[in-house]
Design a protein around this nucleic acid. Structure first.
Lengths: 193, 193
DNA sequence: CGTCTATTTGAATGTACTCAAAAGCGGTGG
DNA sequence: CCACCGCTTTTGAGTACATTCAAATAGACG
């Protein structure tokens, strides 16, 4: 039932059988159907999510009403509004499902308690955050250095699974360009060949 | 001698006097003069740095030779090429001093060992990374949503100390625009008043 | 004081955007 | 199974913001 998340966790720390029990006893499963939301702006992000199967997007709505995708979370990824989760204040992000998705939820209260009972979890999240940080640094860099075409090619190279699965307008929003621009870029790429 | 870093650490974890001794015994101090480098692209980032006084910039040089500032690290900030540090592979970033700067270095080998002796350090770095992640998410968002003028105003609002201290061309590079553009933006802002 | 670098200003260019409309695709109900 | 509706993608034309290249001015440092 919690096989996927335990396998993910085991990449960073080794839990004893007892610890595994303690850990899984605090997990909750949830199913979100396509177009449903796991979190809406203004709510408090009470859980952090592990995606066992499906696809989520974390996005921000700017004052003009335009949506900006910050992250896609596909099978075996984590997600959540970290700021809101850590401080239990209003979320600025929305999390919505692009597909029917199964997630595992770790509650804030439960996690704080788990940190005490299984100190190794500090290491786990240290690693998860560390990795996320490196990934995000790359993203910032790419946004600053590369023109839209290169950013798109990088995206496809880095996340080939996503290119097939995620609608173009959603990818455009992730890349920080309009759907029209992405369409033109794709045409250019196709023409080059 | 290590007062600043200990004070910084104490915001997240409480070390016993013995732990403090163990911890500080592994620290090294270093002075970098303006324009000197703490890390160059291609080297391995063997330490993570805490800036006790001064100002560093972490930057990337793109294929065209243009420099892109990823981060400024002023008094009481941390810095380092995390990717290189974690995996002990070639750094993609450079770290250079914008002012004469005092840093505290934590060696990779020493830190790995310290994690074993003082597990609380996992918590420390979990928090540091978590905070850095939230900050970086903001940055990605701002780059995607906001025009250059707004990004500059946000920067000034968020880091007023830096606006006085850091040359304009360096700030431009951080904002992802050319020095010429920043100059024009500043003029516009001044004219508005 | 002179040199070197940073900043400002100008003119031309380009990339991506906006607005608008057409074409394509997928899902739903008759 | 087909027809329709809504949403996504494509295409076109005009526009805006930031860039590039170039030159002048201002400031910092020895």
């Amino acid at each position: 039932m919690y096989d996927e998340i335990l396998k993910n966790v085991s990449r960073f720390i080794e839990l004893t059988p007892e610890e595994t029990n303690v850990f899984t006893s605090q997990l909750k499963q949830k199913h979100v159907t396509k177009r449903e939301f796991l979190l809406k702006e203004g709510e408090i992000c009470r859980s952090i999510f592990y995606v066992s199967h499906g696809c989520l997007r974390t996005f921000f709505v700017d004052p003009k009403g335009t949506e900006h995708n910050v992250q896609f979370s596909i099978d075996d990824w984590w997600c959540g509004d970290l700021q809101s989760f850590a401080t239990q204040t209003a979320a600025r992000y929305n999390i919505g499902a692009l597909e029917d998705t199964d997630v595992v939820c770790i509650d804030k209260v439960a996690l704080d308690e788990l940190y005490g009972r299984i100190p190794k979890l500090e290491k786990l999240f240290r690693h998860l955050f560390q990795n996320a940080l490196v990934t995000l640094q790359d993203r910032v860099l790419s946004t600053m250095c590369d023109p839209a075409e290169v950013r798109y090619l990088n995206f496809r190279r880095k996340y080939p699974q996503m290119d097939n699965r995620i609608p173009q307008n959603q990818i455009a929003s992730y890349l920080g360009i309009t759907p029209e621009s992405l369409s033109r870029i794709r045409k250019q790429i196709a023409d080059k060949k």
